[in-house]
Design a protein around this nucleic acid. Structure first.
Lengths: 262, 262
DNA sequence: TGAACTTTGTGCGTACGTTCACAAAGGCGT
DNA sequence: ACGCCTTTGTGAACGTACGCACAAAGTTCA
C-alpha cells in the first residue's frame, strides 16, 4: 500500500489572489467565467483544514494508516460530504473504496497551509496572555517558532519566559528584522494594540494575530485575525439567554430574571 | 420608543456556527415568507453585535450622543449597509436623517445579547491561560462574573489568582452548583478537556467556551464555542504563504486531470 | 475474471450572508 | 410651512456555503 507518489511536482495555478481580509474584502481571484480558481480554496475550507490536520496527526500517532471520510468527519465533527468536498479542493488524494492515506493527507494539508516551512512569530506583550501564549506548546510543534517576546514594561523586560528573554518594545523594529519575524501576535492592552500593530506593519510584518479587544486598522495586503474572548462569551450569553426561555414580556425594561438550568 | 415587532419563533439551531453537531437538523424557524423576523437574529449578526457594542461603549464614554451607520461602520470595520441590516434585526432604533442614539443602542444591544443580567463563569484550568483569563478585566465589565477557578494540580489548588482561591477539580460539581455557574471555560490541556466538559454538562452547564485544542462532543442543547490559537496561526500561515508568491513550493493542481502514477 | 461492495468526488437544490441602490422618513434651514 | 438634505430601513441581486444523493472508481472475494 503505497499511494504516495515519491515527489510529483506540477504546475502551479496561483494567479492573483486578493487579500481576503478577515473583515471583508471583495477582491477575489474569480476566473473570467466565474469558476472557483484552481488555487482558490474557500475560506470556510481553509478554516477547517487545521482541524482535520490535528485529527490526522493524532491518527498517525496511533498508527492508523488509512481513514474514511466518514470516520474523519465524525472525529472532527463535520459532515462527511463537507469533509470530502473540502479535501477535494486540494486535489484527489483519496482512494475509492478505501479512504485516505493518513500520512499522505497530513503532508498535503500541511503543504497547503504552508506548514512545511517555518514561520517566525513574535509576541508583543508579556503579560498573562503573552506568557500563556509563549508557553503554549501547540505552536512549535506545527512549524511556528516563537522568536521573541516583547513588552513595554521595563519591570518585565529581561525576565525569562518560556526560554525567551523578554525584550523591550523599543527594540521592536530591530527584533523583527533580526529574527525575520513574519507573524506578529498582539497580546497587549487595548490601548497599545494599534500602535504596536502599526510598528509591526512598518517593520514588514504582514500577518497579525490580535488578542486585544480593538478593531485594528491595517493597510491592504496585511492580514489580521482577531481572537476576542469577550466576544465569544457574549455570543454564548446570547444563546444561553435564548435557551433560558427566550420569550419574555419585554418592553423596554430589563428582565432581571435569573434562570438556572437544572 | 419604536414599536417592537413581537413575533415569537422557536429558537433556531442552538449550536454555534461551525459546530454542526450530529443531530442538528431541525429546519430553521423562518416566517412563511422566509424572513427570520422577530427574534430570529442571524448568527453572523450576533457575532458582530459585541463589536458594535464595544465601539458604542467607547463612544458613550467620550460623550457622543448620536452616530450614523456610516461612522459606526467605519470604526468597527464593516460595511454600512451590513451594519444597518444588523441593527434592523433588533428593531427600528435609528432616526432617519440623524442616526442612532448611542446610549439607547447600547442598551438595546446589551439586552439582546443577554448582558442585562449577570452570567456566572467558572474557569477550569489555572495554568497560564486560565490565569490570564481570570485576570482579564474585559469580563467583569460586561456582565460576566468569574466565580470560580479550578485546577487538577494540588500544587496550584489553594493559591490565589485574580482574587479567587483556586479550587480542586474534584469539587467541580459542588462549585458549579454553589455558585450557580452557567458558563464554563475550559483552559485545560487537551487531554483533560473532554472529561471536564462532560462533568460541566452533567452539572448543568449548557454553555462552554473551549480553549483546548480538541473537538468537544456534547449533547444536544449544549452550546460550545471554540477558541483555538493554533488554528488561527495556521490560517494566517495559509494566507501568508499565498502572499509570498506561491511559486516556491509547487503544488498539485486540482484540475480535472489526474496524474499521480506511482 | 467478474460481480458485489465500499468509498470517493461532485452536481445540484437550498439556505444563508453580503452589498447595492433606492424609497421612505425624519430633521433643518429659510 | 415647505422643500431640501441627510440617513435609515429594506428589496433585490449576487455570491458563498452546506448537505443530499448518486455515478464513478477502486477493492475484495468467489
Amino acid at each position: 500500500m503505497s499511494p504516495r507518489p515519491s515527489k510529483s511536482s506540477k504546475s502551479n495555478g496561483a494567479s492573483s489572489p486578493g487579500h481576503p481580509d478577515p473583515g471583508d474584502e471583495p477582491a477575489n481571484s474569480a476566473a473570467p467565467n466565474g469558476v472557483p480558481r484552481g488555487r482558490g480554496i474557500p475560506e470556510a475550507t481553509v478554516a477547517r483544514l487545521p482541524v482535520y490536520l490535528r485529527a490526522l496527526h493524532a491518527l498517525a500517532d496511533r498508527g492508523v494508516v488509512t481513514i474514511s471520510s466518514e470516520e474523519l468527519a465524525s472525529t472532527t465533527g463535520v459532515n462527511p460530504a463537507k469533509l470530502r468536498k473540502d479535501l477535494s479542493h486540494l486535489g484527489s488524494y483519496g482512494t475509492r473504496g478505501v479512504g485516505y492515506d493518513v500520512e499522505y493527507l497530513v503532508y498535503q494539508i500541511s503543504r497547503e497551509l504552508g506548514l512545511t516551512q517555518d514561520w517566525v512569530v513574535a509576541i508583543i506583550g508579556a503579560g498573562n496572555l503573552g506568557t500563556a501564549l509563549a508557553n503554549y506548546g501547540g505552536f512549535a510543534s506545527r512549524g511556528f517558532r516563537i522568536a521573541a517576546l516583547l513588552d513595554a514594561d521595563s519591570q518585565v523586560v529581561g525576565s525569562r519566559v518560556a526560554g525567551l528573554t523578554v525584550e523591550h518594545t523599543d527594540k521592536l523594529e530591530t527584533v523583527i528584522r533580526d529574527h525575520a519575524v513574519s507573524i506578529g501576535v498582539i497580546a497587549t492592552p487595548a490601548g497599545a494594540a494599534q500602535g504596536m500593530c502599526d510598528r509591526l506593519v512598518a517593520a514588514g510584518v504582514t500577518s497579525v494575530l490580535n488578542f486585544a479587544p480593538v478593531v485594528l486598522g491595517v493597510p491592504d495586503g496585511v492580514d489580521v485575525r482577531k481572537v476576542d474572548l469577550s466576544i465569544e462569551l457574549q455570543i454564548l450569553a446570547f444563546h444561553a439567554q435564548r435557551k433560558a426561555g427566550g420569550a419574555e414580556a419585554e418592553s423596554t425594561r430589563p428582565t432581571r430574571e435569573k434562570t438556572v438550568p437544572a
